[in-house]
Amino acid sequence: MLKFTLRRLAYVPVSLLFVSAVLFTVLRLTGNPIDTYLDINRTDEQVAALTKRLHLDQSLPVQFLIYLKDVLSGDFGQSLQFGEPAIHVVLERAGASIQLVTAALLIAAIIGILAGMACAVFKDKLPDFLISTLAVAAQSMPSFWLGILLIQFFAVQLRWLPTSGRGGWENLVLPAFTLAAYLLPNIILITRTSMLETLREQFVVTAIAKGLSGRQVLFRHALPNALNPIISFIGLQIGRLMGGAIITETIFAWPGIGRLMIGSIFQRDVPVVIAGVLIVSVVIVVANLAVDILLSINDPRIRLD
């Protein structure tokens, strides 16, 4: 188990190195950093100082190594909007984003798995038809419009929930459900297929022959065995979920990393954008690692290969 985790962890630096290289390339493509950091009224002394500080007089590979060293020590430069180190600005907003993504993930997983199980248990009957049809239809739904519809209905019409911003749990409900909608339809359909396959397995008959109730057979024996494709799917979709989080934060004015990055693009605050991208990448890599570990905990056979 430990060996497995360690081997998986070895991929982390490789992935981050790759992202850093992409970021560095883009950073240099963005144009002369001097134009980014200094305004029109710059003096020659400022330019000279910045050239030295950013090592622009060195060759490109050397610049990359220096950049890599800075990135590894968390130095992305000063934020132009806030006058603080960019990484601090980003990390301050990280909590809000993690809260939103975690809530959405939980909602999507719990509702999706339960609904998918209902489909499998009532295969070709009314609940299956309703839920499956709804799930297929929901795949055509743009989540950014779904968010706006939810605001119109629950916040403006019914006045049950606040329209935007962050505060108590009632602020979290609408954004979390909007973000959950990214994964929910697929989780339902995957659970349905996987569950139907598992229910045909012989060990399910063994479990019934032991005297377990239908619910015990479903939750103790069938569900854990049907879980692998669902966990793998969630792992593959974490990147999409992060992308969705950026959109959801924009709709609901949720003060997370996504909204910060979008705002920073319009302020041309490149250090913050780059720091944000790297932090999100770290989260994706770590989440994928967590998914791999979760898979191996759920299924002992995975540890072998």
Binding site: V26, I262, V273, V280, I284
Partner: peptide
Amino acid sequence: DAHMAFPDVLFAIIMAAA
């Protein structure tokens, strides 16, 4: 595989910033 894990929106953000 590596690209699969990287969100499109993030990529678009980098490109738009650039």
